[in-house]
Computed example of a mutant assay.
Amino acid sequence: MAGELKDNRGRGEAQWRWPSIHPEGRKFGLIGVALALLVLLWLDWEIIGWPLLGLAIFTFAFFRDPERVVPQGSNLIVSPADGLVSLIVQVPPPPELQGDDENGRGLGVEPVTRVSIFMSVFDVHINRAPVAGTVRRVVYIPGRFLNADLDKASEENERQHLLIEKADGQAIGFTQIAGLVARRIIPFVKPGDLVASGQRIGLIRFGSRVDVYLPAGTDSKVLLGQKVIAGETVLAEIGRQSLIEGVSL
């Protein structure tokens, strides 16, 4: 993934800019604008037209796709999603990511730390690769549309499992989970693709969750209740274990 190198000693340039709108959302926003203008200018129904226009603006904002500065490090796992860390638990990886197959190694069956990130409708919904490597699996599972904040959403909701194998052979798995409003998970990658850490790999429409399965012997660097940013927040450092505590104020 091409990009400008920046560091903690001032190298590179930084300036504020309006975030772009992902193409997947432009059509929905434009449809909303067209309907609002039709109601306002032709039917003269302001009580309906203005809320429609507001909904169209919200749709554009929902599909915003800001640039991110991705920390570089071979052992770093960055957040694949914007949102709230809603669960940190020890669980076995999902069956679709466990065993080895012709494409490479799986995650095994032993419990590992799962970090769940809940995305509200106000968060950016573009998901990013937590590590650099080769995409080995993309497994879509149809399902229900329970509240994505619930633990059982990992096993019952519409979801998509992804497995990325790093250059050293370490496999990192994560799952995109649809929520109450979400009805479609859209992948940008397929098995065999090479991805950079923080590269855009897909999106989920309208409220959802992403689960990340950390390798054995690795603890989360984020805390329950913490806000994380896709492609920027470091979730974990592979092989590092330590208790980190925080106080909610």
Rank of each mutant, 00 (worst) to 15 (best):
S197H: 06
R11V: 01
E158Q: 14
I186G: 02
Q176R: 14
F58R: 12
V138M: 00
E67C: 00
S248Q: 11
L87C: 03
L55K: 05
E24S: 13
P94V: 11
G217A: 11
G169A: 10
Q176Y: 07
F62L: 14
D101A: 08
G169M: 10
S79K: 08
V135C: 01
L224W: 13
G225H: 08
I47L: 09
V91T: 11
V139Q: 04
G231E: 10
D100A: 15
G173Q: 07
Q176V: 02
E156T: 05
K6T: 11
F62G: 02
L249C: 01
G231K: 07
R128T: 01
L84Y: 10
F58P: 06
A34M: 13
L150N: 04
P111A: 07
V195N: 05
K166P: 07
T134N: 05
L37T: 01
L30V: 13
F145N: 02
P191D: 01
R17K: 15
K166M: 15
A196Y: 11
A148S: 12
G54D: 04
S197R: 15
N127M: 00
D65N: 14
V212K: 08
D100C: 08
G25W: 09
V131M: 00
E13A: 08
T218S: 08
E13R: 12
G73T: 15
A36K: 13
G217S: 11
K190T: 15
D151K: 04
L223R: 11
K227P: 03
W18F: 13
V189A: 02
V112W: 01
H125K: 07
A178Y: 02
Q226Y: 03
V212G: 08
V247E: 04
R105E: 14
L84Q: 06
S248T: 09
G217L: 10
L41S: 03
E96M: 01
L43P: 00
K221S: 15
I172R: 04
T233S: 14
I177N: 00
L180F: 05
V234K: 05
L52F: 05
V69R: 08
L194N: 12
I204H: 02
I185S: 05
G3P: 01
R17T: 13
G99T: 10
S20T: 15
D168C: 07
A153W: 01
P66M: 07
V247F: 02
A61I: 15
G179D: 05
E110N: 13
V139R: 03
G217Y: 09
A182D: 02
V139L: 04
G207Y: 03
A129K: 06
I244V: 11
P187K: 11
Y213P: 03
Y140C: 01
A132H: 02
R114G: 00
A2S: 13
L194W: 09
K27I: 14
H161W: 06
Q90N: 15
T218N: 08
